[in-house]
Amino acid sequence: MKCFECSCRGATIATVIAAALCLALPVLSKEEEFMPNQPDAIPTFLIIGTAKGGTTDLFGQLTAGPVNFDPDRPDPPFPHKSNKELAYLSRTGIDGIKMLPQKQQYMEYLELLGHPCGNAMRGSIFRECFTANATKLFTLDATPTYSFSAVVPLYLRELSGSSKVIMMIREPVERAESLFRHYVVTGTRWSDKHIDDLAIDFFKAINADKGLETALQQAANCSYGDVVCLANSWRDICGFTLMESQENKLFAAGLYNYALAVWRYHYFKPGRVLVMDSHAFFDRRMDAMEKVIRFMYGRPMLPSEQKLAEGVFHHKSTLKSPKMILSPPVRQKLSEFYEQHVIRGLFQTLMDMRDEGAWMFGFNGEPWRACPGFEEFNAAGKSKL
C-alpha cells in the first residue's frame, strides 16, 4: 500500500499538537456498553457507509435464512423478504413533515421495510398494531447513499431517534477504484472511460466553481473537533452541483470526515453507533461479525452465525485492466486531496467519537498505519481494555 502511505504523510503542526493533548489527557470514555434495542425504532438498524465498503456483504450476513430463522435465535427476525438499497430517505421528494409518525411517507417507509404495521390503518388501529407487533420483528435499512447525505440524519431524527447505525469506511482512493471497476465490470456505466478521465473532470469541476472551492477550503480549515463547523461545511458542499452527478460522487462520497460530522451532530447517540473499518471487515470476518452481533443484540454469536462467517472468503478482484487503475500522477493528486479533506482529521474524529460512546472496529492495521493519529487512537483504545 505504498501509494496510500503517501496520502497519509505530512501531519500538520496542529495535528501533532492535538495528538499530544490527547496523550496528556486521561481517557474518559468507558468500555463499550450494550444499549438495548428500542421497539419503536424505525428502522431498528441502519447499515450505512461507502459504496464497495461491505454494506451488501454485511446485510447478507445478518439476513441470510440460516441465521435469520435459526430456531435458537433469541432475537426477533428480519422480514422474510428484507430488502437492501431502499434508499428511501435519500430519494427526491422526501419531506420531513410527511415522515412524521402515521404520515404518508412514514407509512410508505414502514411498508418498504416490511414492518408488520406497514399496511395498518392510521389512528387507533395503527397504534394497537404497533403495540402488539413492534417487538416481533426487527427492521433493517442498508444503503451507502445515506452516509454522505446532509439531510437523511435530520429526517431520521424526526422519524426515530433510537435506531442503531453501523457506518463502514474504506480507504478513499482504493474505494474509488473499486467502485469504478464495479460499474465497468457489471456493464452499468463508464465502459468507454478511463478512471483518470473521471478524476480529472472531478478536479476541473471543483476549479470551475469558486463557491465550491471556497466551501471545500472552509471545511478543511475547520478544527478537527469542531463538529458544527464540519457539519455545516458538508451541508454547504452538498448544495453544489458537484454532488448531482454519479461521476463526481465516485470521489466526493469518500469525504468521510465531513459526512461523519453531520451524522455525529444530528443523530448519533452513545452506544448506538458502530464505525467499522471495511478492510478489517473483509479480512477478519469472524472478529468483525462477533463485534456486530454484540453491538446489535448484546450476546455472543450463535453457531449458525459463526458458520456463516467462517464460510466467507473475500475475493479480491483480479480484473484490473489499465483503464480501471489510476495513473501515478492522478493517484498522487487524489491522495493529496483526500489527505487534506479526510486523512488529517479522521483519527481525531474517530477518537472523539469513541470517547463519546461510539463503538469501533478495525482501524488498527493497514492501510491506516501511516496516517496521522493512528498510533494515538490505538494506544488509547488499548488503555480502555
Rank of each mutant, 00 (worst) to 15 (best):
P77C: 08
P77E: 07
P79A: 02
P79K: 01
P79E: 01
H80F: 11
H80G: 03
K81N: 13
S82W: 01
S82T: 15
N83S: 10
K84P: 00
K84R: 14
E85Q: 12
L86H: 02
L86S: 07
A87I: 07
A87N: 12
A87R: 10
A87K: 08
A87Y: 03
A87S: 13
Y88Q: 04
Y88P: 03
Y88R: 06
Y88N: 03
Y88C: 01
L89V: 05
R91C: 02
R91N: 04
R91G: 02
R91I: 00
T92C: 01
G93Y: 01
G93C: 01
G93S: 03
G93T: 05
I94D: 01
I94P: 00
D95T: 08
D95E: 12
I97V: 13
K98A: 15
K98F: 02
K98L: 15
M99P: 02
M99F: 04
M99C: 13
P101C: 03
P101H: 11
P101I: 06
Q102L: 05
Q102A: 11
Y106I: 10
M107S: 06
M107F: 00
E108D: 15
L110Q: 07
E111H: 11
L112K: 14
P116V: 00
C117N: 04
C117I: 04
G118M: 07
N119A: 11
N119V: 07
A120M: 02
A120V: 00
M121A: 15
M121V: 08
R122V: 14
R122A: 14
R122D: 10
G123K: 08
S124K: 12
S124V: 14
S124G: 00
F126N: 09
R127S: 14
R127H: 11
E128Y: 07
E128S: 13
E128T: 11
F130H: 13
F130L: 14
T131C: 09
A132Y: 02
A132H: 03
A132L: 11
N133E: 14
K136C: 02
L137M: 15
L137T: 15
L137A: 05
F138A: 13
F138K: 14
T139Q: 08
L140K: 08
D141F: 01
D141T: 07
D141K: 06
T143W: 01
T143M: 01
P144L: 01
P144W: 00
S147V: 03
S147E: 10
S147C: 09
F148Q: 13
F148G: 02
F148M: 12
F148A: 13
F148N: 11
S149A: 06
S149D: 05
A150T: 09
A150Q: 10
V151S: 13
V151H: 10
V152H: 08
V152L: 10
P153Q: 09
L154Q: 12
L154W: 04
L154T: 13
Y155L: 14
Y155G: 10
Y155A: 10
Y155W: 12
Y155Q: 10
L156C: 07
E158N: 12
E158A: 15
L159T: 11
L159E: 05
S160I: 09
S163T: 14
S163D: 04
S163I: 08
S163W: 04
S163F: 06
K164I: 07
K164C: 02
K164F: 00
K164A: 01
K164Y: 04
V165G: 08
V165M: 06
V165Q: 07
I166F: 07
I166H: 04
I166P: 09
I166T: 08
I166E: 08
